[in-house]
Amino acid sequence: MAHIPDGVLSAPVLVAGAALSLVGCAYGLQQLAAERIPQVALLSAVLFVAALVHFPVGPSSVHLMLNGLAGVLLGWAAFPAILVALLLQAVLFGFGGLVVLGVNAMNMALPAVLCRALFVALFRSGNRRRTIIAAGLAGGIGVMLTALLVALALALSGQEFVAAAKLIIFTHIPVAVIESIFSAAVIDLLLRVKPEFLNFTGMKEEYP
């Protein structure tokens, strides 16, 4: 459950989350070239829809996040993409809230940026198997890091949320597995069909 509702978190957590999200968005937008804006918008739409795909796990229901995939494809631009998707989910569906928007965006976007770094570090052009493994790891780790951050935000806000925090980490293991497979498939497909979609320096021209 990456959408923490309003009125749960304590003020310091809210302020810290909002500040980090603001900085991340500003940096992401500053880095963003105009040609990549449509890409960011489309991935934002994908994130917006992905979070509506819910399935039951134990007593709760969880949803896809795809923040690992978004991070690999967008890098720092994942921050504005995630913020817009979360804002519309909050306004249209009441998932999460407006006050906690900063915390929720940070919980998803920070792992996204880390996943990008991980993917770039593991990626070797021309090595398809390694690419698939890197993409799978990024997809899975993105989800688990988000679950961890959500749990941390809850636990920092009050002792009564510790049980909920543990439940969140536990219920997101199946999500991580699904997204791991999904991210690997999508990135493998993109690198074969549209390698320029992942314009890391010095990798697109060498990839078969």
Partner: peptide, 11 residues
């Protein structure tokens, strides 16, 4: 994804 979302659970 939006097709997949049809029978899915919501939050």
């Amino acid at each position: 994804l939006s097709v997949v979302a049809a029978p899915a659970w919501s939050h």
